[in-house]
Amino acid sequence: VRLVQFQKNTDEPMGITLKMNELNHCIVARIMHGGMIHRQGTLHVGDEIREINGISVANQTVEQLQKMLREMRGSITFKIVP
């Protein structure tokens, strides 16, 4: 398990697509080339996201998580399992 932190201070999309796997874990499905996450190089396709800013992603839908990420500003921390 590791923590990945980055800054999001604009309306620029993060450039990641999330999916739920068969165990209902949140997985990074795709990283858009040239997007914020791609430029930082901190997340990778297949990484499992456990928490966003200390909030568990368990029992949340992809749509709920994407909305939460769109609305966040400032420092964002993901707890991930590579």
Rank of each mutant, 00 (worst) to 15 (best):
V1W: 06
V1S: 07
R2F: 05
V4K: 04
Q5D: 10
Q5Y: 11
F6H: 05
Q7V: 13
Q7M: 12
Q7C: 14
Q7G: 04
K8L: 11
K8Q: 13
N9V: 13
N9Q: 13
T10C: 15
T10D: 11
T10R: 09
T10A: 08
D11F: 04
D11G: 11
D11S: 14
D11P: 08
D11W: 05
E12A: 08
P13I: 05
M14E: 03
M14Y: 04
G15S: 02
G15R: 02
T17W: 10
T17H: 15
K19R: 12
K19E: 11
M20P: 03
M20Y: 12
M20E: 03
N21P: 03
N21K: 05
E22H: 10
L23F: 10
H25N: 14
I27E: 09
V28S: 01
V28K: 00
V28E: 00
V28M: 00
A29Q: 12
A29S: 09
R30M: 06
I31K: 00
I31R: 01
I31Y: 02
I31A: 02
M32P: 07
H33D: 12
G34S: 08
G35I: 01
G35W: 03
M36C: 08
M36R: 07
I37T: 06
R39F: 03
Q40P: 02
Q40F: 07
Q40C: 08
T42R: 10
T42K: 14
T42Q: 13
L43P: 02
L43K: 00
L43C: 03
H44C: 12
H44Y: 08
H44A: 13
V45L: 09
G46N: 06
D47H: 00
D47M: 01
D47N: 02
I49N: 01
I49A: 01
E51G: 09
I52N: 05
I52T: 06
N53H: 01
N53M: 03
N53A: 03
G54V: 01
G54W: 02
I55W: 08
S56R: 09
V57A: 09
N59F: 12
Q60E: 08
Q60T: 07
Q60G: 05
T61S: 11
T61G: 12
E63M: 06
L65Y: 03
L65M: 09
Q66P: 02
K67P: 04
K67L: 10
M68W: 09
M68I: 08
L69K: 00
L69P: 00
R70Q: 11
E71P: 05
M72I: 15
R73S: 14
G74M: 01
S75L: 15
S75D: 15
I76N: 05
I76Y: 03
T77Y: 06
F78Q: 00
K79A: 15
I80V: 14
I80E: 00
I80S: 03
V81L: 13
V81D: 04
P82E: 09
P82C: 08
